[in-house]
């Protein structure tokens, strides 16, 4: 699915906001086709410059819409297909407020549990990291939007980075897990190197593989 970017005046500020957004969540933009909607820009704006600026950011522009076809005549990017309609749900909002201090989240972005997670129990926390001071039993599962930290034995399942956070990690003091998953890529107990069992271990994602290494 293509992303729709809608530049707004002043273009320089909007580009700065886009840069910070790309830095925060590079995966959103990676290898995604982009359509530029120019309808938000006043007549007479140098559209070539806008498109060049976007291309300089390695965005794969597959089309431009909301621009008067006359403006494009004879321009270097004139061959870019012109589009006339777009669905609102494909818009990617680029916030123009460049906040100096990151806004404090209202919801807590971490969950701390001081009890063991028993067999059959499931802890799900999509907003961020989960820390468990205790063990995760065989037959229990911990699902987190962010990373998972277990200060005890991890014997059940740990599913981290569920909402597309490939940077999420799983840490535990004693690895005996049934399954480890990060951003949809998983590793079952069978595939875990036997020499890592019972040790303090961290797991992270390297491309399409869950990597494991001892912490001590």
């Amino acid at each position: 699915m293509a992303l729709v970017l809608t530049p707004e005046p002043p273009v320089a500020d909007w580009l700065a906001a886009l840069d910070s957004q790309m830095k925060q969540s590079p995966s959103v933009f990676e290898a995604r086709p982009v359509i530029v909607d120019m309808s938000g820009l006043p007549r007479g704006t140098d559209l070539t410059a806008v498109v060049d600026a976007l291309m300089a950011r390695d965005l794969r522009i597959i089309g431009v819409e909301g621009a008067d076809p006359d403006w494009t005549d004879g321009q270097t990017w004139g061959r870019t297909p012109m589009m006339s309609t777009s669905r609102a749900d494909r818009f990617y909002e680029v916030t123009t407020e460049v906040a100096d201090v990151p806004a404090l989240p209202k919801e807590p972005s971490a969950l701390v549990l001081t009890r063991p997670v028993r067999s059959g129990q499931s802890v799900t926390f999509m907003q961020g990291d989960v820390t468990i001071v205790g063990s995760v039993a065989s037959g229990a599962e911990v699902i987190a939007g962010g990373s998972i930290h277990v200060y005890g034995a991890l014997r059940g399942r740990a599913v981290a980075g569920l909402l597309g956070q490939p940077g999420a990690r799983i840490f535990c003091r004693r690895l005996d897990a049934e399954l480890l998953a990060i951003d949809g890529i998983y590793k079952t107990a069978d595939d875990i190197e036997p020499e890592l069992r019972g040790r303090a271990v961290q797991a992270w994602l390297d491309g399409e593989a869950v990597m494991l290494a001892a912490l001590d």
Partner: peptide, 16 residues
């Protein structure tokens, strides 16, 4: 034995 221990763990969760 392992199956009994896991079931007990489940029960402790329910007790709590």
């Amino acid at each position: 034995e392992v199956s009994s221990v896991r079931d007990s763990d489940r029960i402790i969760g329910l007790l709590d």
